[in-house]
Write a protein that binds this DNA or RNA. Sequence first.
RNA 1: GCGAGGGUGGCCGAGCCUGGCCAAAGGCGGCGGACUUAAGAUCCGCUCCCGCAGGGGUUCGUGGGUUCAAAUCCCUCCCCUCGCACCA
Length: 950
Amino acid sequence: MEYEPHAVERRWRERWAETGRYEADPGDEEATFITVPYPYPSGGMHIGHARTYTVPDVYARYRRLQGDNVLFPIAWHVTGTPIVGAVERLRKGESDQLETLQNAFGVSESELKNLETPMGYARYFIEEADSSYKTGMKGLGLSIDWRREFTTNDDRYSKFIEWQYRTLRDRDRLEKGLHPVKYCTNERQPVTTHDLLEGEEAEFQEYTLVRFGLTVDGESVTAPMATLRPETVRGVTNAYVHPDGEYVVADVDGEPWFVSEAATEKLRLQERDVEIRKRYSGDELVGSTVENPVTGDEVLILPATFVDTDNATGVVMSVPAHSPDDYVALRELKERADELTEYGLDPAAVRAIEPIPILSVDGYGEIPARDAVESAGIESSDDPRLKDATQELYNREFHQGELFEEYGEFAGAVIEDVREELREQFRERGAFDLMYEFSEEVVCRCGGDVEVAYQDTWFLTYNDDDWKAITKRAVEQLEAIPENTREQYTHTIDWLNEWPCIRNYGLGTRLPWDDEFVIEPLSDSTIYMSYYTIAHRLDEIPVEDLDHEFFDALFYGPEAVDDPDARALDLREEWLHWYPVDFRCSANDLISNHLTFFLYHHAELFEESQWPEGITIMGMGLLEGEKMSSSKGHVVLPGEAIDRYGADTVRFFLLNSAEPWQDYDWRADRVESTHNQLRRFWNRAQEVIEAAPAADADVELRPVDRWLLSKLQTTIRRTTEALEGFETRTASQTAFYGFEEQLRWYRRRADLEREGAAWTLRTVLEARLRMLAPFVPFMANELHEQLTGTPAETWPAPDAELESDRIEAREALIRELVDDVNDIVDVTGTDPELIRVIVAADWKRTVFQQVRETGPDVGAVMGQVMQRPSLRERGDEVNRLVQTLVEFVRERDDETLSALSDIDERDVYEDAAGFLADAFGASIDVVAEENTDDEKAGQAEPFRPAIVLE
RNA sequence: GCGAGGGUGGCCGAGCCUGGCCAAAGGCGGCGGACUUAAGAUCCGCUCCCGCAGGGGUUCGUGGGUUCAAAUCCCUCCCCUCGCACCA
């Protein structure tokens, strides 16, 4: 039978679907519940996604073969704005969006109209498109229980999320507060990253405002100067304004402030009450002085065109000792001090300004900024190297700089450790304030300017110490695969802060007590695994019955509510059956958000016994060595790959080319060769199946058969061990390629015409098919059925009876002999007619036994050996042999040595004589060293016969 | 800067935890052979250097160290990737 993957795969797919093979219901067997993040159908499925879902499938199939009741469900994540945004861009006819859909996912012109509603779009990529997730998953043969699918926009799911968020609020894990958001000043509403034309990478920066005192027109006002380095406040030597800039005095929260006009809008958006009173041009203020709120010093305001009035407050303080920028700016101003008289400045006063160092940092002198500028040879403020010098110095000062005495309790401390605290202290004293600003310019797709706005929002208090503590406990009892990810969870918990969990629009569940807001995607996907356990049965219950008490009864039991709903308690049984999640398989980049949130919410909402038991991390996929990119059309679709190679090839390649947590690279030439390997396997299997005697046939086995069976047991052990730890690569390599090597030797070595050989090969094939069934389920089940009449239903167990160190050691001797003869033939270029194998003399065996007994210590062994007169006579010869054998023994473990010492070498070689004769086309003569006077005979050592070619 | 991972033969990639059977699996590529009218596929062998007897030499980012013995353990440094932080 030819290998026709598509026909085979179609047959099995249909069969599994018809018989509901993977629909899992509670039963007596041990429950295993395995999940993977539900896909986000904002586009089609590509080959990069394929492995994500195949890894858990392999584990699920493995556990089933081990006898477990396994649940592997899937659902669809549609929450948030990506789908809505995609639909909008499609409606507007944006070309890059159209290209992605058409080029990467093969959407036809006629289908586009179906994608014009968010859920229509989602449905299309969930199950309608050729590139849809469901099509891909079914094609790959994933053993999913399809009855349980849902979307996160479903009414019932929303009821569940509402329950979750009400519960979190009741437990004080949800708080309301002001939070910075991106806000389009044109559309006058918050925007998301997807709405941006420029500045997608922009971050919110929290500027410290140093509240300098200024007198304008006889009035005392506050001149807030923005800085990211509040600790430099004592090093301020002057301030800068843009001489042509538009400035105002405005009442900000009832207090007069001097800021740029642009800043007033920013402050307003940040929930400040702002009323402009009077306008000024920057040059009107040049020459005035401002009072440092920390030192009380009066410093000059100087003019500078580099000041950006559209950034923060538009008033800048200057710290020339620690900022190369400021240092250069001051130097240049001093050089042209005489010109500054036009601003009414006294040139002498400008020239008198000197940098004031406030910290020391290794590698720089008294004035670090000066050193940085001078050592880089920077001449002017236009020098591009100034940026690097600034960056370098900031980093050094932040991580290593130690504050001077004036800083009191902070003196001697490193900036990194005290910046926050110092800022807070000065804030409390009224010297500092703060405002937000973006790290770069941000522009909305509508062309409007985007600013930071403060908005009332709800956030999850991931920074609560007790919540952090309990989540860390969840990490401790977690099986983290690979183990080195454990630290990353802990690390994430350490730095995680409050998380704003709602958005203004998008798909998903509305906040139950404020339906203006939608719960965002990373926040509505933290405990939904529990929803899988009941999803298919929830459909029978009217949505309006799914109230808070219903879920309380379901998840917290009958005692949790006054009048528990019987249907909820019934569902509770199923939840308890499957929960907790045994393994969640997810991408490594989700450790820092989704996976840690998943742990947080489980730790808070559920009993410890329901906490996740394991997380397996998965690496990224590359395509021909490069990142996949839907927008560039640099993707391979599972459907295409399956059409071309068959699903088994796709699966096997994905699982065999790297361990799940490693990155892998889809390369067509390798996939091709994987396909060839599978076909070769199929063809060989066909031969074995045709010749196969019954499993219980009474056959005579030769040592070489027993050798192969012994190797099989080792293979089973190693494969099992690997799969237990999700090492899909090791497992499939061992069961497939690793064993193929043994078979190659076996085919060469054994007489395959014997029934014993046929039986051995069928036994081996059967076990391998069962081990390969998780990886290549179509092929393995098909062949298994051809061989035995049933699909592969159980995992093979190693049979200790069939393992034999002695048999393996015997075979190893033959292999070594073949290698040695080959070596000699190669080097000498001869073609021998006779190969004489001379087995070491008995006295040499005696020495070997002595070494084994005494241990690998030349002196000690010699001491023992020399007590025997027969050996003492041989003096030097014995000494040399002991040296060799000590090495030999040292390099081998006890089992091998023990096996070797039981072996009769002559018997081994004589037994293999027929094979050797065939292999070398020569006659074989096995003799004992004692019985020959060949000059090479003396070279014979135990387990290393002398070889003579004639 | 912090955290994680990594640097192996022409290439990809195992090995490293648990030191010795490691000149280092497997694949790709290359070379030779078998089969074929031929190509492809398949199968067999070779593929660091030297060697007409199973041997020797030099290799696993750098430089040290531990050990009878190091790709493997320890330390130093260099480089790469990712995440985080930092970034008038």
